[in-house]
Design a protein around this nucleic acid. Structure first.
Lengths: 218, 218
DNA sequence: GGAGTCAGTGAACAGTCGTACTCTGAAAAT
DNA sequence: ATTTTCAGAGTACGACTGTTCACTGACTCC
């Protein structure tokens, strides 16, 4: 019988396992190419199933790409939450955030490579999925910033602008770290150093944002 | 005879013409896909030459991509020079710069699409070529900023950091405008508005950069 | 325990791909 | 005027592509 809906059963368990295999194999293959040139057969071959079997999981490569977005950004969810919950003085927060990103990029390069590459890649549905997820992240950050005492009196639009800058800054930092590679420790140090300074500059700017009369129509 | 080295002659003139045709056809094809999935035959077919004829101009798609980087960023050279030579008060400079970018993106979407997409794309030589060109642009901007009276006393490294932020900001603005499409005037207006605010925030930050003791080792 | 579901197989389809080869004909060099 | 150069055509090659189809066999449900 096994009326427990939580228990997947050997059938669906195996299906989920190959589905996961398809996705992780794709991530590996995508380190050297981009999604729009990834072949359906190529992926199927990598996991050892026939090309037709691929269709049992995804109706095509674009759909697999969208699924990869969900998984990838889901896996970064804890990283994001950690960054959002960051407290303490600004300098520490910046240093900790950059270090967190650097560590995650070093540990899971494929995830970030996929996101950074396909964010502007040639597959529209995937591009949209990534944009949606990043917008969601940006919204969460906006709410965190709204609770910040230093940002009291900010207009909601400006808060969103600031959050967007932080998000884009993190993505660009990840991209730069990926380009350097994990072995180039000197370049990695240079990138994280610059990333900290950029965040610091944004922070300084936000501290004096209300000093000048910000035109509400500009 | 025609010993004038400047005169191309009908022979080389025709070769240059088909070479140019190959490149512009590629740019069109690349609006819907990325370079790593662009086919040699596909390009040859688009300009009406045989696949073998392609090799008379490029030894492969990656080489064509690198040539595209040169042409694309060469074509943006005047835009960049205009931005660099910008004078006047900050607010005007920001508004003018953003407007310049928006106009160029609307007029030559394919150029920017190619740069934005392949900047993080799957073809390493092209990625490196774009990075080199953008670094060059960043260096030029650094020198312009060094002459700025408001930035007197800045360390060279901080100037490079600031220039890099401006450059990345422009690239991201172009990317956002491309994603919106030229018809969505409301979204376009929203993007340029946000872009102006971002530049303004960076500017405010740079005005107060030296206020706080900037740790030289952070 | 018998019927149905369904992940995965294997073969076949019509294409496309990159590359290599010889050949042509007009421009260039002598 | 004759020879050389060379952009491009044409052909052929083997390999790879996405998609469809009927099929198998282990699981699920009643």
């Amino acid at each position: 019988m096994s009326h427990t809906p939580g228990a997947p059963g050997p059938r669906q368990a195996q299906k989920l396992r190959t589905r996961q295999a398809l996705m992780s194999a794709s991530l590996e293959l995508l380190e050297q190419q981009s999604l729009s040139s990834l072949g359906l057969r190529e992926v199927a071959r990598a996991v050892g199933i026939s090309p037709a079997g691929f269709y049992r999981h995804f109706c095509g490569i674009p759909e697999l790409g969208v699924a990869l977005v969900e998984e990838t950004l889901g896996s970064l969810r804890t990283l994001i939450a950690t960054i959002l919950a960051e407290t303490g003085d600004t300098e520490r927060r910046i240093a900790h955030t950059v270090e967190l990103i650097a560590r995650h990029v070093a540990e899971q390069p494929a995830y970030f490579r996929f996101l950074v590459r396909e964010r502007t890649g040639g597959v529209a549905p995937v591009r949209r999925a990534i944009a949606t997820q990043l917008d969601l992240f940006s919204e969460e950050l906006t709410e965190v910033l709204a609770a910040e005492s230093e940002l009291r009196g900010w207009q909601p639009e400006d808060l969103r602008m600031l959050a967007g800058m932080y998000v884009d800054q993190m993505v660009m930092t990840a991209a730069a770290l990926l380009e350097a590679g994990p072995d180039d420790t000197a370049e990695t140090a240079r990138i994280t150093r610059t990333a900290r300074r950029r965040l610091r500059l944004i922070n300084v700017g936000s501290e004096h944002w209300l000093d000048e009369g910000q035109p509400s129509s500009a």
